[in-house]
Every structure is written in C-alpha cells, then in structure tokens.
Design a protein around this nucleic acid. Sequence first.
RNA 1: GCCGGAGUGGCGGAAUUGGCAGACGCGGCGGUCUCAAAAACCGCUCCCCGCUAAGGGGGUGGGGGUUCGAGUCCCCCCUCCGGCACCA
Length: 819
Amino acid sequence: MVEKYRPQEIEPKWQKRWEEDGIYRATEDPSKPKFYMLTMFPYTSGDLHIGHWYAMAPSDAHARFRRMQGYNVMYPMGFDAFGLPAENAAIRYGIHPYTWTMRNVENMRRQLKSMGPAHDWSREVVTCLPEYYKWNQWFFLKFYEAGLAYRALAPVNWCPKDQTVLANEQVIDGLCERCGTPVVKRDLEQWFLRITKYAEELLDFSKVIDWPEKTILMQQNWIGRSEGVEVAFPVEGHSEEIRVFTTRPDTIYGVTFMVLAPEHPLVPKLTTPDRWPEVEAYIEQTRRETEIERLSTEREKTGVFIGAYCRNPLSGERVPIFIGDYVLLTYGTGAVMGVPAHDQRDFDFAKKFGLPIKVVIAPPGWQGGELTEAYVGPGVMVNSGPFDGLPNERGKEAVTEYVEQHGLGKRTVAYRLRDWLISRQRYWGTPIPIIYCDNCGIVPVPEKDLPVLLPPDAEFKPTGESPLKYHEAFVNTTCPRCGAPAKRETDTMDTFVDSSWYFLRYASPDYQDGPFDPKKVEFWCPVDQYTGGAEHATMHLLYARFFIKALRDLGLVKFDEPFLRLYHQGHIIVQRQKMSKSRGNVITPDPYVAELGADTVRAYLMFLGPWEQGGEWDDSGISGVHRWLNRVWRLVLGTHEDIRAGNVPAGEPAENDIRNLRRITHKTIQKVHNDLDRFQFNTAIAALMEFVNHLYKFRETPVLGTPAWREAIESLMLMLAPITPHLAEELWVRTGHPYSIHQQRFPTWDPALVVEEEVTLAIQVNGRVRDRITVPADMPEEEIKALALKSPRVQAQLNGKEVVNIIYVPRRLVNVVAR
RNA sequence: GCCGGAGUGGCGGAAUUGGCAGACGCGGCGGUCUCAAAAACCGCUCCCCGCUAAGGGGGUGGGGGUUCGAGUCCCCCCUCCGGCACCA
C-alpha cells in the first residue's frame, strides 16, 4: 500500500532544503546562456491574494522550465513599496507608512515563499528603502544635467476644503472622495521628464523580440504620431498670431472659425472686455472637467466666442475665435482651425453656434448641397482659390509647399504623448533632490549628499500641499553653491520612477558605487522574458523603455530595450470585480495551501484557463486537480513498488503496446514543452492528465517495468517539475533518483517516434461529416479519394448527384463536393 | 467617448491558426467495492426529433458576406473586460 500524499509535510521540507542549498541562486556563469526572467514586482498592498499567485505561479513554472532547458536563469523578486495606499493606511489606522509597508513586505514574502517559487531572494529589492531610492535621486540629477528634467506649471486636482492635492482616483464624479467638495484644478510648478524627446524612437519596436501585437499597437496609439503643418493665423488688431497644427492642410480654405483650448495663454490677451465674464466662467467650468469628459465625442459641444478675429493666411477670410473644451492645450499647439465641412467635431461645433459650413473637398457626386455630417473622405478641392481641382491628397502637399514657401508655417510632426510629470505632493515617495536658493535659483543636490532622506517623523496627513513642506528640519537647508539659507523641494517622485529601472538593480542589489554594477548589468540585462498585467501596457512599460533609452544616451547601459519578450497574464476577479480589501472580496491562498498544498493551488491556477485571459475565481474545480496529483502520486510510487516486488502483469509486453507507449510519451513531451514555452499552461496540464490516464491503462499490461515504462514515468516527473515542484522532487527522490530534480534537463522528444502510423480521416459530403476512414498515414491521395467515394454513407448522401470536386486535406479530411 | 481585447455545453475551457466543434477538468446521472459512508475505480453526459436504436436536423453573442469548407477571415451591431497620463 502506497503511503498517502501529504503536501503539508513534503512542501515545507523541500522549500527549506532548496533554500539551504541555494539551488535557485543565480551567478554570472558564462558557461550557460543567461536567461533573465522577471515578473512585475507586487505593490505592497498588504493583502497578498490569489491574484498574486496567479501572476507568480505560471511565471515561476516558466522560469523553472528555462532552467531545465539548460539556461542560467536569474529570477528575482522584490517589492514596489512607495505610493498612495501606504499614506491612506497611515491616515486610517494611525500607523506610519514605513511600518505598514514593511509589515506587508514581511507577510507577502512569507506567502510568496509558501508557493515554492524558484526566486533568488538574495536579490530582493524594496523601493522605499534609502539604498534604493537614493538612485532614483541620482538618476534624476543625471537627467537634469542632460536637460531631460525640467520644471513647468501643471494642473493638479485640488480640494479647496481639505486644502490638499488629490489623485485622480480620489476624485469621484468631480467631488473629493473624503468630503464631497467639488474638486478644482490648480496650477503648480512641477517636475517633468522629457519622454517626448524619445517619441520617435519609442514608436520603433524592431529591437524587441516578442511583444504582444496589441501592446505594441496601444503604445503606438498612445504616442500618437501625426504628420501635418503648423500654420500661423494673424490676429486682427494684435501683433500675436495663433499657431494651429493640422493634419489636413488641404481643408484650410474651409476654415470658418478658430477654437483655442480654454487654458491657451493668448485667451486673456485676446478676449474683448465685454466677452471676458463669460469667457472666464467657461474657463472655470473647464477646469472642473476631466480629460475623458472633454474628449468625449458623444456630448454636445460647448464653447464661447472671445470677441476677437483672426485672418486665414491663405484665403484672407476673417475668422471668429472661440474657446472650447474639446481642444486640449497639451496636444498640437492647443488651437484648432475649425473646418466643419470636413471634421465631425468641428461640424458639431459649427451647428451648435450657427457657423458657416464651407465645403472645400467635394464628396463624390456632390451637387453643392448642404452636408448632414462632416465629409472626411477623399475628393477634389473646391472653393480653394488656386488649389481648385486638385485631388485632396495632392492638395495636402501643394498647400504645405505654399505655406512653407510664403513663411506662413512649416511641416511638423505632432505627438499625443506628453512629457512625464513626476512631481507628487505626497509624503510616501522619493524626495526630489533639488534645492531652491534665492541667489542661485534651482540648485541640484550634489551627488555626494545623496540620498536626500525622507524624514521618518513628517506629518504625512493631508494637511496642506506637500506634507514635507511643514517639516522645518527637512525644508530648511543651505545652498550647496553659495551657502546661503535655502529651501528643499518638498515634492516626491511618481512611483513609476521606481519601477522604471528596478530590473537593473536586481543584477547587483547591494552595489554601493552606483545604481548598479555595470558589469553585472551587462551580463544579465536586458530582461529576456517579462510578465505582468496588460493594464501596464501604456504607462509602466513605456516609462521603462524611455528610461533605458535615456540611460543608454547617458552612457550607463549598452542596450536599447529593457524587455525583449513580454507576456501579459490576465487577472483573477471575484464577483465580477478586482480583489481589494475595501471591497471585502479578497481570496488568500493560505487556506487552500493548508488544506490541499501549494502544488495543487499552483497547478489549479495554471489549469483554470488561458493565462492571458484570467477569469472569475471559482474553487469548484480545485478538487479535480488535487485528485489528479493524488493519481500521479499513487501511479509513480505504486508502480515503483510493484516493479521492485516483481508484481507485474504476466506475459511478454506486446511490441505494439511498447510502440504506442513511447509514442504517447514523446507526443506528450512535445506538447508540454511547446505549451510551457508559450505560456499555455492549461493545455500543458490537460496533456499531462491525458498522459496519466494512458499510463493507468498501460499499468495493467506487461509493459509495466519495461524501459519504455521507465522512460514514461521519468518524463512525467520531469514535466511536472516546473508545475508542481515539491511533488516532483519528492517522487523523484523516492524513486531512487539523485536530488535535485530541479537540476535535471527537461526531457526531449524524438521526432521519429511522434509520427502516427495510421490516421483517421473525416469524410464529408458538402462540408458535413458523413463517415470516417482509418488509413495508413502514407496512403496516396488518389487511393484515399477513391476509398472515400466508395463509402456507402457517402453514396447514400450523393444519391445520384454529380460529384464536382473532391478536396483532400492531408491527415485531416476528404470533402466530396456534389451538386 | 477614444485606444486595446474578449464572447464556444449546466460551469472553467479545447480546437495543430481556414479543415471532424466541445480535448482536459468540474458538476450531474448510472454502476462497482463497502454493514454503511468516504476514498478509489468503471460507464454515460452540447441541444432537438427518433425506441436509450439506425439515422437525421440544429449549434461557437446577433445579423450579413467570402469559401468546397468559417469558432477561426471581412462588414455591421450587442454585451463584457483593461487603459485613458496622480491607483499601481
């Protein structure tokens, strides 16, 4: 009788042993190809839930698979530890963000380790520790020197009652989440990183090996490159001109109005006194709107005439100037030339304000009638002076030429991408290493004075702008340049700065002389395989790419892209929602681990469905996976005992059975290998389940105990090693193999053994299956077709109809087409 | 709204990328073993007509199309999910 499978005993045992032996510790061993495997590090929210395991367990299986393929794998783990939730917890529970965060780190580390992962914990990085954030500051200084960091006015959400800056998340329907006061926008001097300098290069994915198409597409759309022309419209009675960016210079004769972003700097200057009260009120109103609202094409257009006019530089026509919230200051020049006939938003605006709609690109068959909607298609230019008669595509070029030659404007490329605002008016983040001196102005903190430590005793509650502002000992300092009394910058950095380079720190986490040891980074980086949620497609993943390109240009790294391959896992949701403490729907792995073992939970999470898709948490199927692991346990140990005791079915093993067993073994190896390679864990496990089902049948035959049987059982254990590492190790050692299975090679398949000798073909008549025939795999096409036609069921279906075609798809089907 | 995805039995999902729809598992039904239960094992299980047969019909969110053949490709629509620059 086989001993019972007790994961609660074997799992801690092996975890301890692996850790003691350091079998997952990565070293710079050049004898094997390196493989840097990385999972997005978790935010230290405190509730490590089944969703974290969902992200980590399959990724761990992939890392283990790569190790078994002979790669020198570095698979580190760390914690993203700065951010808003720590401050919220501090306010709610009166606990210091540091204490809260580090307590969460402890707990999350313990829970992660109970999964039995192959992480190299000696490389752990925690971003809220000074030895980490010091280097955020160091990078900031480098960026500043290189002109990549600059200060500018930018709006923040401001709650007038709480006197505090709010994150977008804290604004619910335009109201402060704490007190319900309407939130307004307020301009503050803030720090930016010049990501737009890299817009063009960031569009290029040719140096990436394998990223999901959709992620590339989302980043490209996010960057939003468009080619066009910037044209200056002189303002009547002023020396100023309004510069507009347009991708449709061919429609310039159709301009009937001009719309400026309400925040446009020329608005106060150009607005006539009689229009000012209304204009000012509209600007105020706009400042309460979100960008999503403003860009919605659904809602009715709004705007206000400012009383001023400009002149169309080509047609000479007089054009009234409006402001409208659908124009954003951050895109193009913050001004739009209104061409209602050929842009739907302009059309809606013109209808609303009774402005003329002048057709300048004739729609096909147009008789000069009124349009019911904007015509955005191609056509011939009309009402466009010297350009009349040109097809509009050529017209674009001609107008651009004209504009450039007459000094009215120039070709430009506009990007939707904006510079990265990194200032946060928060406590729990990296202090920005800048000092403001009355004599010297903006003075960067000298490198030798880093880190600028976050004072532990600050009043981090939301009592004002930047919490650090009220920490006198922090704020008041002396100017490093002239020695006069000076003040520190009190804003902290966006936490996306932390996550833009943490993967470099893993290469040398204890390095003191810089953010990383250049030699170690050169050895390990870039990341070969990155996994994480698709919600990071446009922000984190773009910021990290920007960071690496900037570091490259600073001479700090030698590669262009941080992550060569990328895979997105989906998310586990509960009651159709993301798990969160506040919703009270957090599922932790702990009780499942206690009852069924980590291996069962790991395998179940991988078996649930395509990793990419995630899904609703439902534990009703977990017993099936646990049952299966029990079957594996009894199969491997039971047959091991039977063979040793000579207790095998009598008789000679049939040649055919041996051949079949070997084919099934090798086909399974091929399938599991390919699936683990492509993150298709669910089908890998399904294949392993089928394999085990087959082995239970073969167990009843004399092949039990043959070399083919041993090959099957060893392959099974090795294939399970990445998925259920503890079970695999226990079985491996118990069946007399040398520790550790995690230092073995993944089995390989023999292509010659995988091919089927016979195939079953579906026989269709007009696309419906009517019969099946089993034929030798190498039977010639003509014979197969003849055989198909002979089938009585086919004949019954044909019933005198004329056969017009016979389609043969090798190894699949025959389709008889009849009329 | 804009950008990007997804939709297949009672449930999670599979389908070699245009070739037998429903692998594998859950659940359900029936059985073996047992004093009994659990565990384990065996069989059946997309829907409808039909005798639990032979056989036939329908079927991958809805509607249309391309094709010998569509879950897969194209067009329109519906629903759900992710992101929208201060949640990370």
